[in-house]
């Protein structure tokens, strides 16, 4: 194996940045925001797997598995909420929902 961990980390960082950019830029569409979050989570998983192979320990992989389980529950709840909100307002624009205004 000749892939340096460092390059894996750079890839993960770039992926993370793209996910972040997606989440921030797509304020008009909550689905795209969620997609951005998925991208970021994948970047994290990449980091964990890279570390796991660097030190030969299974913990990183296990953690990424947990992360996947966590993501699936998060996505199911989030999408259920999107459906719920869309039913109420006929909109997926996050700027339409500001009932938490201080």
């Amino acid at each position: 194996m000749t892939i340096p961990l460092f390059h894996v980390l750079i890839l993960a960082a770039l992926l993370f940045a793209m996910g972040l950019a997606c989440t921030i830029a797509w304020r008009a569409n909550v689905i795209m925001m969620l997609i951005g979050i998925e991208i970021m989570l994948n970047a994290v998983m990449l980091t964990l797997v890279g570390g796991s192979s660097q030190w030969g320990m299974a913990d990183g992989q296990i953690f990424s598995l947990m992360l996947m389980a966590l993501t699936s529950s998060e996505v199911s709840l989030a999408l259920a909420m999107v459906v719920y909100l869309h039913r109420r307002r006929q909109s997926v624009d996050t700027d339409d929902f500001n009932s938490m205004k201080g």
Binding site: T23, I24, R27, M33, T94, F97, K101, G102
Partner: peptide, 17 residues
């Protein structure tokens, strides 16, 4: 500062980021 809390998720996310 309270005016910052617009209730819009995007603003919170941006601040957090």
């Amino acid at each position: 500062l309270g005016r910052w809390t617009t209730g819009q998720v995007a603003v919170y996310l941006l601040s957090f980021a």
